[in-house]
């Protein structure tokens, strides 16, 4: 079973993603901000992380930087999901080593397809 970590501070967004990926057969982990993500990653190695950028305490960019330092997570795919749509924001995200950057609002269908694709790439 593939593991997916969903990090967002918007409860209603989490609800949809949780529902969709559970249905698609993933084991879903939830985090409400960057620090919860890093806490979870101490014990879990998800296959993919959906990371919001604008989160309390530790933002998405910083979280990714931390993730990249963790050798255990070398194979974990990270996708930014953000309402920040500026070119500079996207570039920054990809430069930090994200596998994709998807702007909000997105299609759930396309998002799941993109996750599948990434996981099959390896």
């Amino acid at each position: 079973m593939k593991k997916i970590l969903i990090a967002d501070d918007e409860h209603k967004i989490i609800m949809t993603l949780e529902y969709a990926f559970k249905k698609a057969g993933y084991e879903v982990f939830i985090a409400r901000d960057g620090s919860e993500v890093l806490e979870l990653l101490k014990t879990e190695v998800p296959d993919v992380i959906l990371l919001d950028i604008m989160m309390p305490n530790i933002d998405g960019y910083t979280t990714l930087t931390e993730i990249k330092k963790n050798k255990n997570l070398a194979k974990t795919k990270v996708i930014f999901l953000s309402a920040k749509t500026g070119e500079a924001d996207i570039k920054k995200g990809l430069d930090l080593g994200a596998d994709d950057y998807i702007t909000k609002p997105y299609s759930i269908k396309k998002l799941t397809e993109r996750v599948e694709e990434l996981l099959n790439d390896k």
């Binding site: 918007e10 949809t16 309402a83 609002p105 997105y106 759930i108």
Partner: peptide, 10 residues
């Protein structure tokens, strides 16, 4: 975008 994202996904 944030509420729209939620609305659209839902």
């Amino acid at each position: 975008r944030t509420p729209i994202t939620a609305i659209r996904a839902t």
